[in-house]
């Protein structure tokens, strides 16, 4: 672990400084800088997950608390939440939007806290990075599985604005988290006569039951 971190630091450090030091033309060179930053960002998040989520003897409540902090720090929660609600975002009142974002955060944190542990530390291996339209990049990773089965392919869509860098979407074996949630929430809203309040009701029930869950 330490070796890998050192190796990365040695590898990425000079590249980072080089990119910063050069008078940058817009476009290509700038994007390359973002690719390096995005990789370092994903790598350090995996390390953070290892340190804060996988310790023995930590209660689930404590892990949820720590993961909530990580989730808010590293994910573009508001942007993802808006995308997931799609066209219904505009139809929601200000109060509904606010409650939705809060419940959405709760749902993400309680759903992913147990799954996210697997993305910790050396389980995550960065394969390559590709620049996307706008100031976004996709970091291609594979996550090792404990039983030695074929690793899981996970893509991280990362966006940047200035110094801030955040995850926009996670794509696991071709299935996008935000796309899937959008289908899920959209279906509920349609069943509730196009009303966001119907979705909020179901989200309240779901998040309450997930919080109470023992997390097995």
């Amino acid at each position: 672990m330490l070796n890998r971190r050192c190796f990365l630091a040695v590898l990425l450090g000079p590249a980072f400084i080089l990119v910063l030091a050069l008078p940058l033309p817009p476009g290509g060179a700038f994007a390359a800088g973002l690719e390096v930053r995005a990789e370092a960002f994903i790598q350090s998040m995996a390390q953070e997950a290892l340190e804060s989520l996988t310790q023995q003897g930590t209660s689930r409540e404590e892990r949820i608390k720590r993961f909530r902090k990580m989730f808010n720090a590293h994910f573009a929660v508001r942007s993802i939440g808006k995308f997931v609600l799609g066209r219904y975002w505009r139809k929601a009142s200000k109060d509904e939007q606010a409650e939705y974002l809060s419940l959405f955060e709760d749902l993400m944190v309680t759903s992913y806290v147990d799954r996210f542990q697997r993305y910790a530390g050396k389980n995550l291996n960065i394969l390559k990075t590709r620049a996307e339209k706008g100031s976004a990049v996709t970091v291609f990773t594979e996550i090792a599985r404990p039983d030695g089965a074929r690793p899981v392919q996970v893509l991280w869509r990362v966006g940047a604005r200035g110094e801030i860098i955040k995850i926009l979407d996670v794509v696991v074996e071709g299935a996008s988290m935000s796309q899937t949630l959008r289908s899920d929430f959209g279906s509920i809203i349609r069943q509730r006569g196009g009303k966001v309040s119907g979705l909020l009701e179901e989200l309240r029930v779901k998040t309450a039951s997930l919080k109470a869950d023992a997390g097995n």
Binding site: A76, R78, S79, I80, K82, F83, V84, R130, E132, G134, S135, A136, T138, F140, L155, R157, G159, A160, R161, K166, L168, D169, V171, E173, G174, A175, S176, S178, Q179
Partner: peptide, 13 residues
């Protein structure tokens, strides 16, 4: 093809 899905963007928000 999986990287070509539409995804949330930071956009102007």
């Amino acid at each position: 093809g999986s990287a070509n899905l539409p995804a949330p963007g930071l956009g102007q928000a």
